[in-house]
Simulated assay, not measured.
Amino acid sequence: MSDIVLHNYYRSSTSYRVRIALEMKGLTYDYVPHHLRHGEHLEPAYLAVNPQGLVPALIWSDGTLLTQSLAIIEFLDETRPEPPLLPKDALGRARVRMLAQMIACDIHPVNNLRVLTSLRTLFGAGDEDVVNWFRHWVNEGFQPLEKILASSPETGKFCHGDTPGLADICLAAQVTNNARFGVDMTPYPVIERIHAACMALPAFEKAAPENQIDAE
């Protein structure tokens, strides 16, 4: 038993982000799965933990509830500073947050499970419509992201320099999720290169969806 508890779902990209950060920080935690497609995140027992009914939710060692993956990751970085997930300089931190938010704020919110489900239930979208919706918004976000990464001297082996950080965590989780929807990554060679570098690291691999206890 650990004094840190992570409520999550193996295929949730936001949960994947937090798992990567926990692994990078070398923190042990109890893994509590909630099957989103079965509606387990909406059961009273979980809503008593997280009234928002979303994953991930982290219960810290003192019992404090933390939600929202970027907030959780920055908390981990502030309280467990090694290895750092943000640069030391203010401009570098702003750039990394910018890259992370291009994914976390502009791509993920319109492509998460509850949005895709609503497309079906409220608007009668079929499977092909949902896949096309997902691909469209990924491409809308990845086209400028690729240009920024390709043109910036700050880009190295990873999104910012040669060590992985917050932006790489978001990028890796999104690219992994893209594969389920058959997103063509050919137009994004820099993103693909960074993703490959991330997945060569033990923390990213151990946290990957297919390696979780609830993987199907």
Rank of each mutant, 00 (worst) to 15 (best):
D184P: 05
E140A: 10
A94T: 13
G156T: 06
K88H: 14
A21R: 01
L54P: 09
G26Y: 00
L47Y: 14
N132L: 14
G126M: 10
I103G: 05
P189D: 05
R97S: 03
I4G: 03
R135L: 13
D3W: 15
I107Y: 10
A48Q: 14
E192F: 08
A172L: 04
M199Y: 08
E74N: 14
L54E: 09
V5Y: 13
Y46G: 02
Q212I: 03
A208R: 10
L22Q: 02
G63D: 05
L91G: 14
A172I: 06
S13A: 04
G92A: 00
I72E: 01
P209H: 15
E140H: 11
E192R: 04
N139L: 10
L6E: 06
C198V: 00
A45K: 11
S12I: 08
V115A: 08
V190T: 12
D30T: 06
V18A: 00
W60K: 09
E140M: 11
P84C: 00
L76K: 06
G39L: 04
R95N: 02
F204V: 00
G92M: 01
A57N: 08
D89L: 15
V49L: 12
S13H: 09
N139S: 13
L47A: 14
Q143F: 10
D62I: 12
D77M: 07
T163M: 06
R193V: 03
R97A: 02
V110L: 00
T14C: 11
Y16V: 02
R97H: 07
Y16D: 06
I191T: 01
V130E: 14
E43L: 05
V131D: 15
N211L: 15
V131Y: 13
L76Q: 01
F142S: 07
A125V: 08
F204C: 02
S2I: 03
E205W: 13
V115M: 02
E192M: 03
R180C: 10
T14E: 02
R80V: 07
L85W: 15
I4H: 07
D214G: 05
R135E: 12
K206Y: 00
P81W: 03
T14M: 04
T121Q: 15
I20Q: 00
H195G: 06
D62C: 08
L99G: 04
Q143P: 08
T176E: 14
L99F: 09
F158E: 05
I169V: 06
L42K: 06
A71Y: 03
H35V: 06
H136W: 12
A203Q: 04
L58A: 06
V18W: 07
E192N: 09
Y29K: 03
E210R: 10
G182S: 13
M185S: 11
M24C: 07
V175P: 05
F204K: 00
L149G: 01
A71R: 08
A90G: 14
Y188L: 02
L119Y: 14
F75M: 06
Y188G: 04
L116D: 12
D89P: 04
A90L: 09
M24R: 08
A179F: 09
Y188S: 00
L85D: 07
Q52K: 11
F134D: 12
Q101M: 10
S2L: 15
Q68H: 10
W137Q: 12
I73N: 05
P202R: 04
D3H: 15
I194P: 07
F134K: 13
N132H: 14
M102F: 00
P83T: 14
L122K: 15
N111W: 02
R80N: 15
F142E: 04
L201E: 11
A57M: 09
A173C: 08
